[in-house]
Structures are given as structure tokens and as C-alpha cells.
Amino acid sequence: MPEATVRPAWPADLVDIASIYGHYVDATTVTLDETPPDSVAWSNRYWSLAERGLPFLVAETDGRIAGYAYCSPWKTRSAYRYCVEESIYLAPWATGRRIGGALLDHTLDECARVGIRDVIAVLTSETGAPESSSFHLHRSRRFEVAGRLKGVGYKNATSIDTVIMQRALADHEPAGPATGPRG
């Protein structure tokens, strides 16, 4: 099993990223999107995060995009500027290979580097269950359950809870300025 290389995402990666995410939109309740974003939406997301200096990473294995991770602002009010929500998705063929852990580790390092203080993960009923691999991954990286919102989503004729997990990055020494990301 080849090791994944984690690197910054490039605009050329967005087609693969959209394909990976589209699978989860169409086939699961891991995301509450009901329609996969189009190429314009992905491009807008990519450039918006780049403008803010927030991480958008891919994991590559044998020249293929195995997964991606990015952070977006938690809220738009300026007082939240040191807090982000992270998202990680793996190609179905890439699960169970520790790629999610590599992406999350690099994401946390990049967040600390740009002065982020708190990282939020929002897991749905499917991924927020204590026995799920996503829940275990986040717990192994010292995320703590901050709360559960019951029945806030409805997809595929199913009421869906979300589990909010939080990780403070006080134990990370940011390599960059402590002024927080732009935006």
C-alpha cells in the first residue's frame, strides 16, 4: 500500500475533488448537501479559501487524488476569525489506509501555522456515532464532543443529527503570524 503525499490543492485538482464529494452527496448522509456543487462553486470555494490563507490540501497516492481537506471560516463575524470548520473526504477506494489521519494532521499543522486557535468538525449521524471511523479519527487527534444538534438535517427521508467536535490548538506553536487568517 503506497504512502500518500499530502500537498496544497491546485485548481487542476478540483475535478477530482468534485468527483469525490459528489459520491458522498449522492450516496450517503455524510454531508447534508443534496446536490453536488458544480465546477464554478468549487472554483469559488478554492479561491475564497486561498484569499483567506486557509488550508486546502489533497492526498495523492500513485498520482491519483485519494482525498482532500480544507478549512472554512466557522462564522462570518470578525470575532470568529481564529476559528474554522474542517472538512475531510476520501475517495471510496482510499478509505482504511490512514489517509484521513494524514490529511487531518497536515490540516491542523497548517491551521496552527496561520494562527487558527480552534478547529470545529461537524459530523452527521452517520459519522458522529462513537463507533464510526470519522469519530475515532477526530478523538485520536484530541477533538472533544462539544454538542449534538438533534434532527437539524433531513436527507434521503431521514432525520439527521449533527455532532459538533472541537479541538483547541493552544498546544500548537504557530509558525506564522499570530494575527489570524485574513478575511
Rank of each mutant, 00 (worst) to 15 (best):
P36W: 00
P36E: 05
P36A: 05
P37T: 04
P37W: 01
D38P: 09
D38G: 14
D38M: 08
D38R: 07
D38I: 08
V40E: 15
V40Y: 13
V40H: 15
W42A: 09
W42E: 08
N44Q: 13
R45K: 02
R45N: 03
Y46T: 09
A50N: 13
A50I: 14
A50C: 13
E51A: 15
E51C: 11
G53E: 12
P55W: 06
L57W: 06
L57T: 05
A59W: 05
T61Y: 10
T61W: 10
T61I: 15
I65S: 02
I65M: 05
I65P: 01
A66Q: 03
G67H: 06
Y68I: 13
W74S: 00
K75A: 11
K75M: 08
T76Y: 14
A79S: 09
Y82D: 09
Y82N: 11
C83W: 12
V84E: 10
V84Q: 13
E85K: 13
E86M: 10
S87G: 08
Y89V: 07
A91H: 09
T95H: 10
G96S: 04
G96K: 04
G96L: 05
R98H: 12
I99T: 06
I99A: 00
G100V: 01
G100E: 01
L103P: 03
L103R: 05
L103G: 00
L104W: 05
D105C: 07
D109P: 07
D109V: 11
E110K: 13
R113W: 04
R113G: 03
R113I: 05
V114P: 00
V114F: 03
V114N: 00
V114R: 00
